[in-house]
Simulated scan of single mutants.
Amino acid sequence: MSSPLSELLKNPQLAEQLLSEAQTRGFVTAMAAAPHLIDPAEWLAFLWGGDETSPFESHEELEAYANEIVNMWNQSREDLLTGQWQWPEGCALDDKELVTEATRELAEGMLQGWQLSRDDWDTIMPEGSEDNALLGGVLLCFSLLYDPENAMEALSQEGADGLAQFEEIFTSVPTMLCGLTIKAQALVQEQ
């Protein structure tokens, strides 16, 4: 993944304090998928552990980082609402590890981000509703991708061809995530 964010993360001091690029992309994608828009000012600090003080040495560095995050959010939101979101570069299945490190980290960031918007999701897609099953399915997919070894074991115990099922899960995530975001947006507009 080569981007302005990659350039910022080449600074070892910042790389130690910020989420990795893949984790950041997952977190930002979760924020972009949220039913209600959440101002980045409310969640930006979570990208460096929630500390009030940012790890940046200058205001210009912080501003460049924040601008990159907002641009990423805007692109993710547009891609999700138009059904165009795809796995970012570097996210893939892996013969040896089941998924690449980038896939695992993106899933981790996505799950972390989802926690911030969880109340919105629970309100718009309450437990027991058909829509909640869609939300649960998407979250389950990201959980499985975050911990693929246990996922494979669980699928095998259920008698499924674990690898084939896992490939199907990975392949279906973009469609499911876009569908969930579009459905959430429609539910918000109905309110």
Rank of each mutant, 00 (worst) to 15 (best):
L81G: 07
G109Q: 04
E105C: 00
P12G: 13
G159T: 06
L14C: 05
W87V: 04
Q17D: 08
F56E: 10
W85N: 03
Y146F: 13
H36F: 12
G83C: 07
L19E: 01
R25A: 07
S3K: 11
L180I: 02
D79P: 03
L44R: 08
M152R: 15
G113M: 07
E153T: 11
L155F: 14
G109N: 05
D161M: 10
L18Y: 13
S143Q: 10
L37C: 00
E78T: 05
E97W: 04
S143K: 05
A107D: 04
V28H: 12
A66L: 04
W48L: 12
L80P: 11
G50W: 02
E167N: 10
E68K: 03
V173I: 06
Q189C: 00
S3C: 12
Q165M: 14
D95C: 03
Q84A: 12
I182N: 07
E63L: 15
Q13E: 15
A160C: 02
S117F: 03
Q112F: 01
L14F: 09
P4S: 08
L187P: 00
D120W: 06
V70Y: 07
E168H: 05
N71W: 07
P126M: 08
S54A: 15
E149M: 11
G128K: 04
P174L: 05
D120S: 10
N11D: 15
L144I: 04
V99F: 04
F46L: 15
E89H: 00
E7S: 14
Q23W: 08
M125I: 00
W121K: 06
G83F: 05
A186R: 12
A45H: 08
N132E: 06
F142M: 11
H36E: 13
N150M: 09
G113Y: 08
A32K: 12
L9W: 12
T171P: 02
E57L: 13
S117G: 14
Q112M: 12
T100Q: 09
Q23C: 10
P174Y: 05
A32S: 15
S156Y: 01
E89P: 00
A133V: 08
E153K: 10
E16K: 15
A107Y: 05
M125D: 02
L9I: 10
K183V: 02
T171Q: 14
S117D: 04
L8K: 00
D39K: 06
P40D: 09
L187H: 00
G109C: 05
G179C: 01
I124V: 13
S76H: 11
L111F: 09
S143D: 00
Q23S: 12
Q115D: 10
E60C: 07
L18H: 12
M1Q: 03
L8Q: 02
T103C: 09
F46H: 14
G50P: 03
D119E: 13
K96S: 11
I69C: 03
L135S: 01
T171L: 12
C178G: 07
Q86F: 06
D94Q: 09
S54T: 14
T100D: 07
P88Y: 02
C91L: 14
N150E: 09
T24F: 14
L98T: 13
A64P: 03
T82A: 02
A186V: 13
V70L: 11
L155R: 09
L18Q: 12
V99W: 03
V99C: 06
G137W: 03
L187I: 09
P55L: 09
F27I: 04
M125T: 11
